[in-house]
Structure formats: structure tokens, C-alpha cells
Simulated assay, not measured.
Amino acid sequence: MMADHAHLRRLQRLEKLRGIARHNALAEAGRAETRLASLEMLQARTNALITGYAARTDAQCGADLARQRIYLGELQGMVGRNDSDVARARDQADARAAEAAAAERSRAAVETRANATAQAIARARSAAALPLGARNTRKP
């Protein structure tokens, strides 16, 4: 019986540790999602700039037009780099979400084992409280 109590305490400590790991994994997943959202917002803003500059027709001379094209080329280069950053951030966010899900499954498994052990202890206590084989000493 004492071994069962010690086992239950170990499982409860393990559940707390797994809960902390789950919390950390969720925080990491949140940070990864935030980074992904910022990069996607930057991507949308850069694409809007490109669209706006590509539609401009206010060049006064060839030099203005050349500067505009150079600027557009730099923006397009930024979009290419940002696309790879977004893809990398999406992969990281997916990986962090998978880690968070695994941490939750691990914590839930330990919680299930701890609950089963607690129920086994409760059953053993209630069984020990019943006098088995006790005879009724009164005669009818």
C-alpha cells in the first residue's frame, strides 16, 4: 500500500513537470505563430507597395523612371527573401504546434495513470475496511 502511495506521488510530480513542459511548448508555439503573422503582414505590405509603385505614371524623366524601377527591383528582392522567411516560419510554427500537442498527450497520459493509481488505492482502502468472513454471532 505504501508503494502505491509513493507511486502516486511520483506520478503527480511527473504530471506537474509535464504540465510545465506543455505550458512552455504552448508559449513557443505562440511565439512562432506571432512571428509567422508578422512576416505575413510584412509580405502583404510589401506586395501592396509593389502594386502601388508599379501603377505609378508620374515619372518626369527617364531618371525618375529608372529610380522607380530600381526601387521596384529592391522591393521584389525583399519579397523573395520574405517568402522564404514565411515558409521557414510556417514550418517552425507547425513544428512547435506538433510539440505542444505531443506535450499535452504526454501530460494527459500521466494524468490518466495517476487517476488509475488513485482509484486503485481507494478500492484497496474500501476493501480493507470491510471485514471479510466476519460471522454474525447472533442466533435467530
Rank of each mutant, 00 (worst) to 15 (best):
A87F: 00
A108F: 05
G133K: 01
S126Q: 15
V86Q: 04
R69A: 14
A25H: 00
R105Y: 09
A89T: 05
L36K: 04
T112H: 13
G80H: 10
H7Q: 15
T137Y: 06
Q92H: 10
L39N: 03
G52W: 11
N136T: 14
G80T: 13
Y53D: 14
R69N: 13
A118C: 03
L75C: 05
E33Q: 10
T112N: 10
A32T: 12
T51F: 11
L26I: 02
A134R: 08
A120V: 00
I50T: 01
R123E: 06
E111P: 02
G133H: 03
L130K: 15
A127N: 05
M1A: 10
D4P: 02
A93Q: 00
M1Q: 08
R135V: 12
R138D: 09
M1W: 10
R135D: 08
T137W: 05
Q76F: 08
A27P: 10
E28Y: 04
A25I: 01
L26H: 04
Q119A: 12
A122L: 07
E40G: 00
E33Y: 06
A25P: 12
T112L: 14
G73R: 08
P131I: 03
Q119R: 14
E40F: 01
R22H: 12
N136I: 15
R96S: 11
P131Q: 06
A103I: 01
R10C: 05
R35P: 14
A129R: 13
G73F: 09
A127G: 02
T57G: 11
P140A: 11
Q68E: 14
V79Y: 05
R96T: 10
M78E: 15
M41F: 06
V110I: 03
A93C: 07
M41P: 01
T34K: 04
N136H: 13
N24S: 11
G62C: 13
L39F: 01
A21E: 07
G62L: 15
D83A: 07
R56Q: 12
A101F: 08
R107L: 14
Y71H: 13
D85A: 08
L39H: 04
R107E: 13
P140Y: 10
Q60F: 12
R96H: 06
A109Q: 09
R67H: 12
A100W: 03
Y53W: 15
A21Q: 08
R45V: 06
R125S: 06
A102C: 08
E104A: 15
E40K: 04
A44E: 10
A25Q: 02
S106C: 08
Y71P: 00
E40L: 00
N82D: 05
G133V: 00
